[in-house]
């Protein structure tokens, strides 16, 4: 094979490999949205986080505004302490409500933020006081069963 042809093919090969890597990074992965920069951290205590995991999305009005950074157990208050990294461009009032929601019936869990009416905004290191725990299916079912049983008891009388 001629030298220049060989070089051409090897060049094409390397370019194709790099293009494939770029496709994997941008089209398949979330390079374009993840690398968007600065965040500030706020914490929130939940009675029960259900199946929430680190790196889960934090959404407000359905828009992703940050990610869960870490989850730990607060042994003084017996609650779960969730550290959230929110993008600096998004500001939320002090009385924001954080609730753990589920995408679809079996989808993964995320934190939903709902802004309140406070003038002051959350800053780095602040704590979100108003929280709503994850819905635990077993509790929901047992509640439903108790209600039904109570209804049945009433009907008998």
């Amino acid at each position: 094979m001629q030298r220049s042809m060989l070089d051409l093919w090897v060049g094409l090969f390397v370019v194709a490999g790099i293009v494939a890597l770029v496709i994997l990074a941008f089209k398949v992965g979330n390079m374009s949205s993840a690398g968007s920069g600065d965040t500030y951290e706020v914490t929130a205590n939940f009675d029960n986080i259900g199946g929430l995991k680190p790196r889960a999305a934090i959404k407000s009005a359905g828009v992703v505004v940050g990610r869960v950074k870490s989850i730990s157990f607060n042994n003084e208050r017996f609650t779960a302490r969730v550290l959230m990294a929110i993008e600096t461009q998004y500001k939320f009032p002090k009385d924001t409500t954080a609730s753990i929601l589920t995408a679809g019936l079996l989808g993964e869990q995320y934190i939903g933020l709902e802004g309140g009416g406070d003038d002051k905004m959350l800053g780095a290191g602040d704590n979100i006081r108003l929280t709503q725990s994850a819905v635990v299916l077993e509790k929901l079912i047992s509640q439903f069963l108790f209600d039904k049983a109570a209804e049945g008891g009433d009907a008998k009388k």
Binding site: V14, A20, L24
Partner: peptide, 16 residues
């Protein structure tokens, strides 16, 4: 060593 990661990336991209 150089071609293996490139080939694997192309394999994955093609698979997607």
């Amino acid at each position: 060593v150089i071609s293996m990661p490139l080939l694997a990336a192309m394999f994955s991209a093609m698979g997607v």
